[in-house]
Nucleic acid binder design. Structure first.
Lengths: 209, 209
DNA sequence: GCAAAAATCTAACAAACGTTCGATGGAAAT
DNA sequence: ATTTCCATCGAACGTTTGTTAGATTTTTGC
């Protein structure tokens, strides 16, 4: 059974398919965020999406495929936002400026694509490695981005030499990622969180110093 | 103290019951940490505990009761450790010293009672409020402890006045709580993480300043 | 050692799970 | 108007779920 030489490797789907696929993903992300992997059933996803459970299989081959798609989108939203923000920075931007920009973009993307990023974070440690191949690779790329940025800053003396970047990075990213658990958009703008996070990161919480 | 003539209204249980109950909780905490609430089955808990699934119901009335017990123990381990550490401090200890102590105790308890604290953190947002009544109350008490400590420090000028403690606290605790997702005891002692976390929190990551 | 109580096992239950598949409706193409 | 194909439905499947209850084993008190 060899593939025919048709240029479209993916069978061209109609427009409604794209829409339903999106609704399924939206519903899955919302359920995953609130209930985790095991408690998110295909029937509950279907109900939120407004279709029957069996119809999901026209768009996805399995529950795990939905998982991977949601998580990939969650990670990609953040990594794309941070990359783009860093790319629009002038080439001679300071390390300090770059870190500040990355933190702001990370938080903004994280909290505005709430369901996908929260689902990705919450579900990440909960599902077998085989179910998150695509998102796993993206995540490692993203970690490397931060690691390189911090290491470069330290090499140029923009960050204290006595700090271990392999502790700094997870402490910082953990602090940011955890915001999905407590941040309330009705209480404060994201910018306030980002500003104070950067301020604390750079200068600490002690007065004067 | 003299023992009463055993008018025990509560049926006095033998000693083995306590042991089995502990093994069930241990197994549940381990499964919950790795797979979350929905994917943790009573049969898998029973298998790890070395008993049959039905036998669990001699010790617990339902799956949810196990959940609540695990989460309560996770939160209690941390809150007790932090309280005790703060209590052994001299009464005239500085705010800085108190915060440093609390961070250290929080991290130490979090990472040494790994399964329970991790399960508690991971499962917390995943289960209905009705299933975590006991742990919910404890958690609110714990949050208040930190909030009061930080507010007191700020009132005395030990923390910068321009920082919002309602942003500072979740950012800090989030950073600490996230360590359960990445910390590897075979790589570094907990003390190294705690030391750098406190250092960064107090002085920031910029040089000199 | 023996009877009573405590603890566990075994087997089953209804419900819910992921998944499959033929039937069916609707929209686009002819 | 009819054909074609996309998208969904509806019902069923085999498994696994939390939970129950009676039989059975293990431990304890005398």
């Amino acid at each position: 059974m060899s593939e025919p030489a048709t240029p479209a490797s993916v069978p061209r789907r109609g427009r409604k398919s794209e829409m339903s696929r999106g609704q399924i993903l939206d519903a899955a992300a919302r359920m995953l965020r609130r209930q985790g992997y095991g408690s998110t059933t295909l029937r509950s996803i279907a109900e939120v999406a407004g279709i029957q459970a069996g119809s999901i299989y026209y768009h996805f081959a399995s529950k795990d495929e939905i998982m991977d798609a949601v998580m990939e989108r969650g990670v990609r939203a953040v990594i794309d936002a941070v990359r783009e923000a860093l790319d629009t920075l002038p080439n001679d931007a300071s390390h300090q400026r770059r870190i500040e920009t990355a933190v702001g973009a990370h938080l903004q993307a994280l909290l505005s694509h709430g369901d996908y990023t929260s689902a990705s974070i919450r579900t990440y440690g909960e599902v077998p490695v085989a179910f998150k191949q695509k998102s796993l690779q993206l995540q490692q790329t993203y970690v490397a981005l931060w690691q390189d940025m911090l290491a470069a800053a330290q090499a140029d003396g923009a960050i204290r030499q006595d700090l271990d970047p392999h502790i700094l990075r997870p402490l910082l990213l953990g602090s940011l990622n955890w915001t999905v658990e407590w941040y309330d958009p009705n209480q404060r703008p994201v910018e306030d969180i980002a500003a104070q996070a950067v301020d604390m990161l750079f200068h600490g919480i002690l007065p004067d110093s």
